[in-house]
């Protein structure tokens, strides 16, 4: 397969970047998208040029590291997969593929296609946890009965890998799907009730302080999420937040 790649190149957070064209040949349909970039980088290194920097780790869709905007969509044109699970068979010989970093003020570019998603960590640190008594008499979590539907919904919310595709896809660069998934996974369990009021307020406050946009319910985040996190989580977070705010 012969392709033309249009890739965002940027030296560091302070410099301006630009799109650069890279023709590439010999790409197999069975290659993953990241393997295709590996091939490009080997060619660039052989020519003495700087390789294209991009985030990756597990390459099996569970770590949330890879973060590419491919042809205008986070993680490319296929659904319910991350960039590392995208294969070149999704493209045709002669295609031009644009590759950009996830764009948001709260995700500043570090270099080329790598963005700093520390803002997600700070939202998580603001309240995405339960305080557990570790003094020796900790109660086994399974000893507390949990409604099956709530357990399933909580598990589904917890499958969010924090990749940032929701922010990248949203026209407002809103982080509501991520934050609501993290709020929901605790809000649905009895263990999460004790800190529920403080949790949702603290996480929403941190989300706003990071500079993410407002949700306008376009639904782009849900469509592009590699884990299929549902918009129901945003509605739940809205209820939790307004309920917490009314309590003061």
């Amino acid at each position: 397969m012969k392709l033309t790649l249009k890739i965002w190149r940027q030296d560091n957070a302070k410099t301006k970047g630009k799109m650069i064209d890279y023709p590439i040949d010999g790409i197999e349909g069975d290659m993953s998208f990241l393997e295709m970039l590996d091939v490009l980088n080997e060619e660039l290194v052989a020519k003495g040029e700087e390789p294209v920097e991009f985030d990756h780790d597990c390459r099996e869709g569970i770590c949330g590291s890879c973060s590419l905007q491919i042809n205008g969509e986070p993680h490319g044109p296929d659904r319910l997969i991350t960039t590392c699970q995208l294969h070149m068979r999704s493209f045709k010989d002669g295609d031009t593929i644009t590759i950009e970093p996830f764009r948001a003020k709260a995700f500043p570019v570090v270099k080329d296609l790598i963005v700093d998603r520390g803002s997600f960590d700070r939202i998580q640190q603001a309240g995405g946890y339960v305080s557990v008594n570790t003094s020796g008499n900790t109660v086994d979590a399974n000893a507390i009965p949990v409604n099956k539907q709530n357990a399933d919904d909580s598990f589904a919310a917890a499958t969010c890998i924090g990749c940032g595709a929701c922010v990248a896809a949203c026209k407002n660069a809103s982080a509501m799907l991520f934050t609501s998934a993290k709020v929901s996974q605790y809000a649905l369990l009895p263990q999460g009730q004790i800190e529920a009021t403080e949790r949702v307020q603290a996480m929403v406050r941190q989300m706003d302080e990071e500079g993410f946009g407002n949700c306008s319910n376009t639904g782009a985040c849900e469509i592009e999420c590699p884990k299929g996190i549902s918009l129901e989580n945003i509605a739940r977070m809205n209820r939790e937040y307004m309920s917490a705010t009314s309590k003061g």
């Binding site: 042809n71 644009t98 950009e100 003020k105 709260a106 407002n172 660069a173 407002n214 639904g219």
Partner: peptide, 25 residues
């Protein structure tokens, strides 16, 4: 205005039709 500011640098290629309706955007 807040939402436009939240994006910062815009995409060169943004395929909004792939995941949301024209009305919503």
């Amino acid at each position: 205005i807040q939402n436009r500011n939240a994006r910062g640098v815009g995409y060169k290629n943004y395929n909004g039709n792939a995941n949301s309706s024209w009305m919503s955007r």
